[in-house]
């Protein structure tokens, strides 16, 4: 039988992989992908408590649906910004985007 802890552990591991990728990767697209991975880990946690929580209900699934919608919007805007940056600076490396760096 499945337990809450297994899903929470999986979510924590995926979140840490995503966090590490977002902190260390140099390509902007991969940083964006890592953020998506973190959001997926959060979704797994939400669905776990919607199914196995003290008061199982559909609300966790509705919330996950909203998270997915906002994530899709985020990717669209992020990739548009990436295309605009690439056109202007001709690079997709995070460390070259230092125009606003203090």
């Amino acid at each position: 039988m499945l337990s809450v802890e297994q899903f929470l552990t999986l979510g924590a591991i995926l979140f840490c992989i995503g966090l590490f990728g977002a902190l260390t990767k140099r390509n902007i697209i991969i940083v964006l992908v890592s953020v998506e991975l973190m959001l997926t880990a959060v979704n797994i946690n939400l669905l776990t408590f919607a199914r196995f929580g003290l008061t199982p209900s559909i609300n966790g699934q509705i919330f996950t649906l909203f998270v997915m919608t906002i994530a899709a919007a985020e990717v669209a805007v992020g990739l548009a910004i990436l295309i605009a940056l690439y056109r202007n600076r001709n690079t997709s490396d995070v460390r070259d985007q230092d125009l606003m760096k203090w």
């Binding site: 499945l2 899903f7 999986l10 998506e36 997926t40 979704n43 797994i44 669905l47 776990t48 919607a50 199914r51 699934q61 996950t64 649906l65 997915m68 899709a72």
Partner: peptide
């Protein structure tokens, strides 16, 4: 994993969207 958590609709939405 979503299917294991009995969120069928979200599993299909995940495949389609992501």
């Amino acid at each position: 994993v979503y299917i294991l958590l009995e969120a069928d609709f979200l599993a299909f939405a995940q495949v389609l969207v992501y």
